[in-house]
Write a protein that binds this DNA or RNA. Sequence first.
DNA 1: CTAACTCCCTGATAGC
DNA 2: TGCTATCAGGGAGTTA
Length: 272
Amino acid sequence: MPELPEVETVACALAPALTGRTIFKVKLFSPALRSPLDPLKKTLPGRKIVNIRRRARYIIAGLDNGNALVIHLGMTGVIRIEKPEIPRRKHEHIFLYLDDGLVFRFEDVRRFGSLEVHPVCRNGLPEMFGSFGPEPLSAAFTAEYLFGHSRGVRSAVKSFLMDNAVVAGIGNIYAAETLFAAGIDPRRETETLTRDQCRKIVKHARRILRAAIRAGGTTVSDFKQVDGSEGKFTVFLQVYGKKGKPCPVCGFPLELARIGGRSSVFCPKCQK
DNA sequence: CTAACTCCCTGATAGC
DNA sequence: TGCTATCAGGGAGTTA
């Protein structure tokens, strides 16, 4: 499933393929994903894509009229830039025809993805991103920031790290991996974190996210890069999806807990 | 205000 | 073999 490194990988691949392109036709094969697709038939034709950015797990294609196409890959979203002659795959929901003869094609088996057009603010981003916390790889994501926001929060630290309003774009995989590396139990009450533990979380989150971006993301079942290849970070995962396997540090069997409705694998010996 | 829950969707897998 | 139940999960929405 795509998280920050996967979305970053896709956005970087899309930038050269889409920047400067004009969308001249929109073809729908489904009425809606998470939200209706029909409005795109009115808002996209004739628009030129001026830039491609990423914020949290969203891809933002800036348009030449002060709007932006905001794309979320959901759980199973795959974007391809291909020739129109290639037959439509079963779960391809929308084609955007480009002025260079290629087609932006969006496939999404579970339909948790979304494509919406929104006006942008002065910072070039739609208003919805105003409530988001800092990017984890930005200078604003510091131990002091995390510690400050953790005071008075009684929910589990894993849910805290996965909250876009706290820090943008960390999902289930990287929250689990970060907390394992930091030696912190994912069920731990957020307000009990020390400054030093916040420092460890920030350090390891940044290290792991950077490594995952270098590897082209993590492929767990569905994720594909724009060129169709799989992410190579999968082999570096320490705990995600490894319930019952020995802890890579101490050998004790990894355990599974459900936190905020999400499965969370951790080592009960190494994470306190 | 926070926190906990529910729902959306389909395919893979387990169990009978 | 074929059925049903369960699980995966981001984010929006609802409830307490």
